[in-house]
Amino acid sequence: MPDLDYLRREIEHMRVQVGRQRREILQLQRAGLSTASAELLLGRMHTKIDDLCAQRDRLKKELPAPKGNVLGGRSW
């Protein structure tokens, strides 16, 4: 099972890829070409990101909560 850092890196990588794919779709549309297959790929990429985010959230819940590290709290 992948660890939390791997999932975060993979999500970020996929988001970059989605941005590139969107730009390519816009170029195809400006050229008057069909974008149906590119849009299907974009949909699969979004589904993959959603799955990775769900895995990440599940792993985050399984991690033990940090002890007493309150932001801006007193240090006695």
Score class of each variant (00 low, 15 high):
R15G: 02
G73S: 10
E12Q: 14
R44P: 00
D57F: 06
P66T: 15
M14S: 13
K61Y: 00
V16H: 12
E10G: 01
L63H: 05
M45W: 03
L71N: 09
S34A: 02
G68R: 11
G73L: 04
R58E: 15
L41G: 03
T47D: 13
V70Q: 10
G43C: 00
E62P: 04
L42D: 02
D57A: 11
R15Q: 08
L63I: 04
Q21C: 10
V16G: 11
S37V: 07
Q29L: 10
L26Q: 15
R44Y: 08
Q55L: 13
A31H: 00
M14W: 04
L41F: 11
L42M: 00
Q29T: 08
L26A: 14
L40Q: 14
R30F: 08
K60F: 12
V16E: 15
Y6R: 02
W76Q: 13
E39A: 01
G73H: 05
W76K: 13
L26I: 08
H13K: 12
L52A: 06
P66E: 13
I25P: 03
D3N: 05
R9Q: 12
Q17N: 12
W76I: 06
E12G: 09
Q21P: 13
G43T: 07
G73R: 05
T35P: 00
G73I: 03
E12N: 13
Q55R: 15
S37W: 01
I25Q: 04
D51V: 14
G32P: 00
L41D: 12
D5N: 12
A38P: 03
G73D: 09
G72C: 04
D51L: 14
Q21E: 10
G19S: 00
K67S: 11
V70N: 11
C53W: 13
A31L: 02
V18Y: 02
Q21S: 11
Q21D: 10
H46Q: 14
